[in-house]
């Protein structure tokens, strides 16, 4: 009955399908206006600015300006940082999610983990940096305990919180929970019958994961990876509070540019910002392509 009523009234519900004019679109004007003013136009401004001189002429000089060694190096560090923290977040997050959801642990732990993930995934930025300084910094509790109890001197071992490794470690703190939050519903979507069908056909454990579970999760994993990548790539606050500006990553360089700490051509800032959009854009493009290939079997 519901189906019938659906089909016979649907033309009225989707007025765009009708040749006649309708005022319905007016309802989304406020949203469209807001998105235009505060999301789309600013982005377009950046993109156009990256290809113009201060006088307004079209140029590729700004983009060419990106080819400086310090910017290229920072970009490379940024990409590496984002890739590694996204990959780590995905793998560790998936592992944790499997352990908590499918591992036979009490369900209380699952709820607690999911709630905590909600908090931790938003516990980014400045406070996170402070927390890691208090943990692994020069006077951090772990540093001191290792030194006093086990005689292990972290800095002598080459560990420095204010470094690539330290930053990766800190980023994982919000990357892993974010992964957990996104992948948990996908894990729930794995039907028990799939596992049982696989087992009765001789595939258990790793074999089941390799042949069924991972392929089924693959689109979600890819999507989360792209999201985590962008998440890390654009993050400024944690790095800033943790390393000052001693570790040069792209967002920190842009930050300095905007602040005017570095007195240079303002249009280089445009170019850097454009580069950032390009990289997260490319990451998402790769994701979309991979996903559409993986998704032939999806509805």
């Amino acid at each position: 009955m519901t189906i019938a009523s659906h089909t016979d009234t649907s033309p009225r519900r989707s007025p765009l399908a009708l040749p006649g004019w309708s005022w319905n679109w007016l309802g989304v004007v406020p949203f469209a206006l807001f998105a235009l003013l505060f999301l789309i136009l600013p982005t377009i401004q950046i993109v156009f600015g990256a290809f113009r001189t201060p006088e307004g002429d079209i140029t590729l000089r700004n983009i060419a300006g990106l080819m400086e060694p310090n910017i290229l190096h920072a970009a490379w560090v940024s990409i590496k940082l984002s890739l590694i923290s996204a990959l780590g977040g995905c793998i560790i997050g998936l592992g944790l999610a499997i352990a908590v959801i499918r591992g036979g642990l009490p369900s209380v732990l699952r709820d607690a983990t999911m709630t905590f993930s909600g908090v931790a995934s938003n516990f980014a930025g400045v406070p996170l940096a402070f927390a890691f300084i208090a943990t692994l910094g020069r006077l951090g509790i772990v540093t001191l305990l290792l030194r006093d109890l086990l005689g292990i001197n972290l800095s002598a071992l080459g560990f420095n919180l204010i470094s690539f490794t330290g930053l990766t470690l800190a980023y994982l703190y919000f990357q892993i929970p974010l992964m957990l939050l996104i992948i948990a519903p996908a894990l729930d979507g794995l039907k028990r019958e799939w596992r049982e069908a696989a087992e009765s056909l001789g595939a258990e454990g790793i074999e089941y994961w390799r042949r069924v579970a991972l392929p089924v999760l693959w689109p979600s994993l890819l999507g989360t990876f792209a999201l985590l990548f962008a998440n890390a790539f654009g993050a400024v606050a944690t790095a800033m509070a943790l390393t000052g500006s001693s570790l040069s990553i792209i967002p920190i360089i842009l930050f300095a540019q905007i602040r005017g700490d570095v007195l240079q051509d303002p249009h280089l800032g445009y170019a850097i910002a454009f580069g950032m959009i390009a990289i997260t854009g490319i990451a998402n493009l790769i994701y979309i392509i991979l996903r559409s290939r993986a998704e032939r079997w999806l509805k």
């Binding site: 136009l41 401004q45 950046i46 962008a230 905007i258 800032g269 910002a273 950032m276 959009i277 854009g281």
Partner: peptide, 24 residues
């Protein structure tokens, strides 16, 4: 389309957006 727009802020870094504001 609306969904796509709402997801853009996850892809465009905030620092880029604010830079656009400052310029615009």
């Amino acid at each position: 389309y609306i969904e796509f727009i709402t997801l853009l802020p996850l892809v465009i870094p905030p620092i880029v957006i604010v830079f656009g504001y400052i310029r615009l």
